[in-house]
Amino acid sequence: MTSPNPRPKTMTLSPVWLIARRELAGLFASRAAWWTGAAYLFLTGLLFNAMALGPGARPSSVVLESFFTLASGLTLLAVPLLSFRLIAEERQTGSWVLLETAPVTPRQILWGKFLSVQGFHGLLLGLTAYLPALVFLHGRVAPGHLLAGYLGLGLLAAALTGVSLAASALGRGLLTAGVFAALGAGGWLVLWLAAPVSAPPLNTALAHLALYQQHFPPFARGQVWLKDLWFYGAGAVLGVEWAAVVLRQQREKR
């Protein structure tokens, strides 16, 4: 069966940017983005005070590590919430037809949406930068530690966006997409729980496959390992590509 609309075979950048800009503009035109940002900042500030700074005089590097760990918890919550609706909501409101009939490939649509979430999450992270900056000014931390922490948060968000986009593509409605996103991100996160009850060497494999335990803490401590860069990068790419294949299959079926 041939497709009714011939689409460009190669992925050019400009449609990706156009879609990303459209998504971001849509986000900032809604109240949700501003309230989400305010809640993110409020919770980050509160957790920074209550848990990262703590009651005593803690070493700067420990405060910074705690900050990145807490921020990763918020990322784990915020990114699937921002991402799961990206396709499912378009379907629900009927605007998906417009995108689908536009001269762009599913892959371009997905990467555009992926970039929009990364951009918004990056902006939120940027807004929290004054908290580690306070530690930087009142304590003593290596700038590389800041860089590593934010790099880890960005990569974690990328991997979560990938799996949430796939969930959004799989779900027929917002509810199913939300459930798939929760199952996907949550299941990936808690995979490490299966490791202790498995036998070697499968337990090692499961521990390595889990989203967080082996991969994010080094970033929070200021350590950047190539294997973790690869893990999150591959997770993001495979998630988006999976979503692209799902969208393509769904289109062929019609």
């Binding site: 590097s61 080094p218 200021g222 350590q223 950047v224 390992w225 294997k227």
Partner: peptide, 10 residues
């Protein structure tokens, strides 16, 4: 492979 860097400490 031990390819990585500790950027927090020198």
């Amino acid at each position: 492979l031990p390819w990585g860097a500790d950027l927090a400490h020198r």
